[in-house]
Simulated assay, not measured.
Amino acid sequence: MRRVLLKGEPFSEPLPEGFLYHGLSVFTTLRVEGGEALWLEDHLHRLRRHALALGLPYPGDGVFLKDLEALKKELSPFPCLRLRFTVGEGVWLSEARPYTPLPLAAYQEGVRVLLTPYRVHPDLCRFKTGNYLPYRLAQREAEGQGAFEGLLQDGEGYVVDGSRTSPLLYRDGVLLLLEGGLEGITRRKVAEAARELGLRVQEARLYPWELPLAEPPPLPPRLALRRGREGEGVRGTLLLAGSGVGLLPVGPLPEALAPLVERFLPACYTE
């Protein structure tokens, strides 16, 4: 017979061990503005697909829609919310908190990113799972060195994801989507908008030295030799896409990208 204490108090509910201890869950985060959850259908569709891919029973969109209305009512004094839906083993979780956007200056002057030593999971990186430790460590590493975002690589050394955003690179009129990480919904919406604005959009696999990083790391000899053969070239402007930021430049915002960044600005700035 098992006894569980939660914050020192007896916890008598059935214990979903995989959910609590092993990261066996999938989740999605989204923003609520003016009472409307942005791209809600897309988020629920991805959540359902990822749950089924990992063998987790999906409780249905209806339970999350019901939770959404309850959370919006409870937090009605706040104009914008950050929302998270999670599916685990026979459980689901819905949570919301007031959302505060970054200062507007961040979208004009840009933020700083850090390439971290952490790597995405070779099998699970395309799923938004609760097995999130590398991302949390990357975020902590970046923030510890004064950066907004920490970038992660895959086993081959390509930059594929951010700890909380999806990276893109703008170069010579082309928007490059860095492949190999999570299928980001905001990034997909950015790609669609970029095409509408006349930009070319392509998928890409890029090494750290091909990105505008302030402090590129030392390379293993085989990669250093490869860089020497290929040359460093023009690196362009790195961008970060995510539900928490919209579309955020790394470094000063080029004039050519202003219309795209403005389209994804959070609509809930406070005085």
Rank of each mutant, 00 (worst) to 15 (best):
S163D: 08
A191K: 02
E183M: 13
E183H: 15
V174F: 11
E210F: 06
A193E: 11
S163T: 08
E179N: 08
E183K: 12
L178K: 12
G155N: 11
V160A: 14
R188A: 14
Y170F: 15
F148L: 13
A191E: 02
E179Y: 04
Q153A: 12
G180D: 10
F148H: 13
G180H: 04
L211I: 04
G180M: 04
I185P: 14
L182Y: 07
G173R: 09
A191L: 00
P212R: 08
Y207I: 05
P212V: 07
G198H: 09
Q153Y: 01
Q153I: 03
T186F: 12
G198Y: 10
Y170G: 13
V160I: 12
A214G: 06
S163K: 10
F148T: 08
E203V: 00
W209T: 10
L176P: 02
D154F: 09
A191N: 00
R171S: 04
L206A: 05
Q202I: 01
A191P: 05
L199I: 00
L213Y: 14
Q202S: 12
R164N: 01
G181N: 12
E192W: 13
V201M: 15
L206C: 05
R195F: 04
I185G: 12
P212A: 04
Q153R: 14
L168N: 07
P212I: 07
L211S: 05
D161N: 13
R164A: 06
E192K: 14
G157R: 01
R200H: 05
R195L: 13
R200L: 09
S166Y: 02
K189E: 15
G184S: 14
V174D: 10
S166I: 03
G180N: 07
Q153V: 05
V159C: 02
L169V: 10
G173E: 08
E179Q: 12
L177N: 09
L199Y: 10
L211T: 03
G180V: 05
L177S: 11
E203Y: 02
L176C: 00
R187Y: 08
R205C: 01
E156I: 01
L176Y: 10
